[in-house]
Nucleic acid binder design. Structure first.
Lengths: 214, 214
DNA sequence: TACGCAATAGGTATTTGTACGTAGTGTGTC
DNA sequence: GACACACTACGTACAAATACCTATTGCGTA
């Protein structure tokens, strides 16, 4: 008999983790499972116990799935990360894939898909939920048609964040010790880059792109 | 032997449902479990199969947990609803409790808490996650200190929704066939009621209060 | 019947945001 | 050294939002 698969489960929802762990334990091949509830705990765990596969949520307190994946791949490049997300958010999967995730599942996938994803990554293949694939394709076409206008600079992100907090340009200027006119200009550039037409759309953009949390 | 407990599981995340269902099936007392993925499906199910206990998510497509609970309690007042939520959001639990939920759990509760909640509601008691209780207490004190300013009228909600979509007052006026000045006035009243000071804060309020979804 | 309140709408003034210009300075890179 | 680019800043104009007024209509209800 070959050695048991070593599997780390990273999710802040205990109930979800418990259920998934239980399902994984009731297959024919029983993996060795360790559970943690955020990215930091995962790093601590991996220091003493190297997992073959990491099933990782993205939205987590302390250290989220994207940061965690980056760290993990830096230290243990052989790790196979399977991302588990609530939503088919563009930014999530592209960032997770950049960070080295080999598979991407939605939480409304079936357990069968989880098994397929595990099998795939163990064989060196990738695995994506149908919804994710659809979204990837849709994005590919979009990216071709219009050059990337979306990357905000650090300063722009900072200003957008403060806009979301309800500050006016004047207030932001005072807070950052720069001229109101500079903030005006930044705001104008942000509107352009994000293809928004007013404050409301800006705030929605910021939330969708995780620049601001509600 | 007494008849098996009839338990409905309502959640749009298949994986979560599968896991929880599996956990519930592996207790000493095996309930009869039916799974559905939103409120509408639950109502369809209950028409032919009356559940003793309904474990219900709140954020769901088609029909969310709050609407579903209202409908269920109207038609089957003996139902015991246990709410399962991601976040300890004020509005969620107060609305769910209004809608007749007997227990409120967070998804980062343990399975043991789920068992306790089921036991409690079967005995006619309530059950709340510690985080929820904490939040309820905190709110009680807040409510005493400041009179409720938050209830928006239907029209105000409609206008706030359109603001979030990025429409200007002029555009909203045209869409609703009313004067721009009326929209101005509504907007002013919304700012007052929500204690916001500008568009950005308004949008954040709308999202927090589930008037607009990102 | 009287009252509150939601929805409608206008007057007027001020502040804030949006749009399209230009341009200097510093930093990193080919 | 030339070039791109982020950050800074100003001029000007117009659009939109915010603030504080008043006021009418209709509906439900104490």
């Amino acid at each position: 008999m070959t050695e048991a698969l070593k599997l780390a489960l990273v999710d802040d929802h205990d109930l979800f983790r418990e259920g998934l762990s239980f399902l994984l334990n009731n297959q024919n091949s029983k993996p060795e499972i360790k559970e943690v509830s955020n990215g930091q705990e995962l790093l601590d765990l991996l220091a003493k116990w190297q997992a073959d596969i990491i099933l990782m949520d993205i939205e987590m307190p302390v250290m989220n799935g994207i940061e965690a994946s980056n760290e993990v791949m830096k230290k243990y490049p052989a790790s196979k990360i399977i991302a588990l997300s609530m939503h088919a958010n563009e930014n999530y999967y592209s960032e997770m894939i950049d960070a080295g995730a080999k598979a991407f599942l939605l939480k409304n996938s079936s357990f069968e898909e989880v098994q397929q994803a595990i099998e795939a990554v163990m064989e060196g293949r990738n695995y994506f939920s149908p919804e994710i694939l659809e979204s990837i394709i849709a994005n590919l076409n979009r990216k071709k048609n219009q050059p990337s206008k979306s990357d905000l600079t650090q300063r722009e992100v900072e200003i957008l964040y403060n806009i979301c907090k309800g500050l006016s340009n004047q207030e932001i200027a005072e807070m950052l010790f720069i001229s109101k006119r500079t903030v005006d200009k930044h705001r104008e550039n942000i509107l352009l880059k994000t293809q928004s037409k007013n404050t409301a759309s800006l705030v929605i953009y910021a939330i969708k792109n995780h620049i601001f949390e509600v």
